[in-house]
């Protein structure tokens, strides 16, 4: 959906262009699956990882004050400023999750795509994480959440798309719970939630 794969048939458009050749990749902040559960040995710090958010804009030229400010603001926004110089592999799942969010925010994305962001994150951090998503959404950022937890989906999302190879449902959560879309889509193996701005 964000252009990682070319569709076999049909079309996926992103900001008006076919997604796989979109020129707007700088507008998407992507948080991959499993970031909370995999801790690599790569000796990279949180700040180095968040700085990557600026890299698509600044591939080789010097970082300006604006770039450094964007990184600092993003770190503060997800409340991990004090962890900036820690190694990312040494953080807890929830903290690592926030570091990836900060990277997305540092890129000044207006669309955040999150692939099962709270797998491996404890319940308390999970609630705080969804609060953060709500705040960001209110600030004008569209959030696309891929999530298997139907409870999460129906409480937090403003729009639901239920997908399992094909689209079974697309609409608001209230209608979604009343339909059989979930059962139709093979027990709801995958639901895609759309926080629409």
């Amino acid at each position: 959906m964000i252009g990682l794969r070319r569709p076999d048939s049909g079309s996926v458009t992103l900001f008006g262009d076919p997604a796989h050749e979109s020129r707007h990749s700088g507008r998407i902040g992507f948080v991959p699956q499993d970031v909370a559960t995999t801790n690599g040995e790569m000796p990279i710090t949180v700040r180095e990882a968040v700085r990557m958010g600026r890299y698509p804009h600044k591939l080789a030229s010097r970082f300006t004050r604006a770039d450094r400010d964007a990184v600092d603001t993003a770190l503060q926004r997800v409340e991990i400023g004090d962890l900036a110089d820690r190694r990312i592999g040494r953080l807890s799942g929830g903290q690592r999750q926030r570091a990836f969010m900060a990277r997305a925010l540092a890129s000044k994305a207006d669309l955040l795509a999150l692939d099962e962001p709270t797998v491996g994150v404890d319940a308390e951090s999970r609630e705080a994480f969804y609060d953060l998503l709500h705040d960001l959404n209110r600030e004008g950022i569209t959030i696309v959440l891929i999530e298997h937890d139907i409870g999460v989906v129906t409480t937090h999302a403003s729009e639901i798309a239920c997908l399992n190879r094909e689209l079974f449902f697309h609409g608001d959560p209230e209608t979604f719970v009343e339909t059989d879309a979930l059962a139709d889509a093979y027990g709801g193996s995958q639901s895609l939630v759309h926080h629409h701005h």
Binding site: I2, G3, L4, S22, S25, G26, I28, F30, V31, P32, M42, I44, E48, A49, M52, Y55, P56, K58, L59, A60, F100, R103, S107, A113
Partner: peptide, 22 residues
């Protein structure tokens, strides 16, 4: 030195780098 940033990005998170359009 010239390609340091994209190389680090790809090394750290290949899927993320692809999504960022690198």
């Amino acid at each position: 030195t010239l390609a340091y940033r994209p190389l680090v990005y790809v090394t750290f998170d290949e899927v993320g780098a692809r999504a960022a359009g690198l």
